[in-house]
């Protein structure tokens, strides 16, 4: 897991390219979303996505999602080289349709969570997470 200066620069260069070519990243994210929703309309009520406004390190960003009653929640990071993050599928013994994990973000971007409800509808929440670049960090 050693992240050298060179790698960091390459990552930075990568995100700069991504910023110049938003179409490509956005297309991959849209594809992932379409695969989950089947192209259905997506509402915005009844889902919560909790993420830090500023992440101290993009390597380990704590996030939580909650969508009471949902069958499944997909998490997408549109600014990552691969937009998929995780899909939580809830079984009958889940006490809440909610979960927390820690994720990697290649740079400042919107994190999106979409829940599939039992009636076949979809709801979405999104949060911008700013990923800071350290001063030295040894």
């Amino acid at each position: 897991m050693k992240l050298t200066r060179r790698h960091t620069l390459m990552l930075a260069a990568g995100s700069a390219v991504a910023a110049l070519l938003p179409m490509r990243a956005a297309a991959a994210a849209e594809e992932a979303i379409a695969a989950f929703t089947g192209g259905a309309d997506v509402g915005s009520e009844g889902i919560t996505l909790t993420a830090p406004e500023i992440a101290e390190n993009g390597n380990t960003v704590p996030i939580s999602v909650s969508a009471p009653g949902a069958e499944a929640i997909i998490i997408i990071a549109a600014g990552n080289p691969e937009p998929g993050v995780a899909t939580f599928n809830f079984g009958p013994l889940a006490a809440a349709q909610a979960g927390s994990t820690r994720i990697r973000l290649a740079g400042t971007q919107d994190v999106v969570a979409i829940a599939r409800m039992p009636d076949g509808s979809f709801v979405q929440a999104s949060r911008e997470v700013k990923v800071t670049i350290g001063g030295c960090g040894g």
Binding site: N59, E82, A86, F90, P92, R104
Partner: peptide, 14 residues
């Protein structure tokens, strides 16, 4: 019986 079943991608942290 299932509680949770998570599909994980490379964006999940170490």
């Amino acid at each position: 019986e299932t509680v949770i079943d998570v599909q994980m991608e490379p964006a999940i942290s170490t």
